[in-house]
Structure formats: C-alpha cells, structure tokens
Design a protein around this nucleic acid. Structure first.
Length: 155
DNA sequence: GCCAACGTTGGC
DNA sequence: GCCAACGTTGGC
C-alpha cells in the first residue's frame, strides 16, 4: 500500500528552489541524524510513496510541494565523508548508521499550506507535525491528511 | 541505568 | 535572535 510522509527542510539549507534546480528534479535526502527518522527512512519509506515537502523555519513554515520517493533507503554517503558536516566517524561502510532515500519533485503547490492555517483545521489536528514539541524531520502522514493538504494547496 | 550537561531543532 | 522542547552524551 502506498504511504505518505512529510519531509522537513530548512529552506536556508535546501529549499524548493534547490530541489527544482536539481538534475531531474531529484535529490538524495541525506543528513538525517535522528534515530526515529532514520528507522523510517531505512525500514518504512518505499518507492512510490508520496512526500509533502515542508519548509521549516520559514515565515511562515509551510508545505510547499509534493514529491515522490524514487529510491528506497540506502546508506547515507555523507556519513563516511570527513568533509561533510554529517560525517560520523562511528559509521563503517559494512555497518552504516544513517540512511537516505531519493525523492523527485512532483508538483509545486499553487498556494503554500501554511502552519497557522493547518493548526486551525480540526481535520488536521492529529497530524504529527502539529503535536506539541514535535521535531521529527521525517513524519508519517495519513491518506486523509495528504488529500486535505493537497486540496488546500490548490488554492 | 540514572540524569545533568550539552547541542540542536524549529516556532515565534 | 530567543528559548522551550527534545535528543544524545558521558560521568558516575
């Protein structure tokens, strides 16, 4: 069964424009260094799954696009590279600690779905994103939440 | 195994 | 830029 996710990204680091400018509008979603998010990338996220691309730390924070998973979890190459900020000296190629997936940009939303707007909607109140203190950068999204966000993004 | 100290995330 | 919430580290 196809599943849905929300991926957070700080646009200062990697935003929608960067994704749109990537070759084939695809990117390696690397740099995740949280075990809960890692487990999702490694074990749960599958090719064909839908992704809500979310700008965190934006004004206001918002879902700005949809993407699709095009390659399932594989060892995050940046963990082995000493020049990378995500370098992890504890990781060995035969025993990788961190995982990445590849995603391809599908569609820019006509209208960004902003965090304050989402908070106002009872239908979205159980979204992981809206949970108090929720910091998870890879989050599951239900089919209903996915459809609602897309509808709101149609403007 | 506890928990204080520290670093990071991310909304505001 | 601030700071609350959270996750991780490391001494004991």
């Amino acid at each position: 069964m196809r599943r849905y996710w929300l991926f957070k990204s700080d646009p200062e680091t990697f935003g929608l424009d960067d994704l749109e400018g990537s070759p084939g509008r695809e990117t390696c979603w690397d740099g995740v260094r949280n075990y809960q998010a890692r487990n999702l990338l490694r074990d749960e996220v599958q090719v064909g799954d839908g992704v809500l691309f979310y700008h965190s730390r934006a004004k206001p924070p918002a879902v700005v696009a949809t993407a699709r998973v095009v390659r399932k979890g594989y060892p995050d190459p940046t963990q082995f590279d000493p020049r990378e900020p995500g370098h992890d000296p504890r990781s060995k190629p035969e025993e990788p600690r961190w995982y990445a997936v590849d995603i391809r940009l599908e569609k820019r939303l006509r209208k960004p779905v902003e965090l304050p707007e989402m908070r106002r909607l009872p239908a979205l109140e159980s979204m992981v994103l809206l949970h108090k203190g929720s910091r998870l950068s890879i989050q599951p999204v239900t089919k209903e939440e996915w459809s609602m966000i897309l509808r709101l993004g149609r403007g």
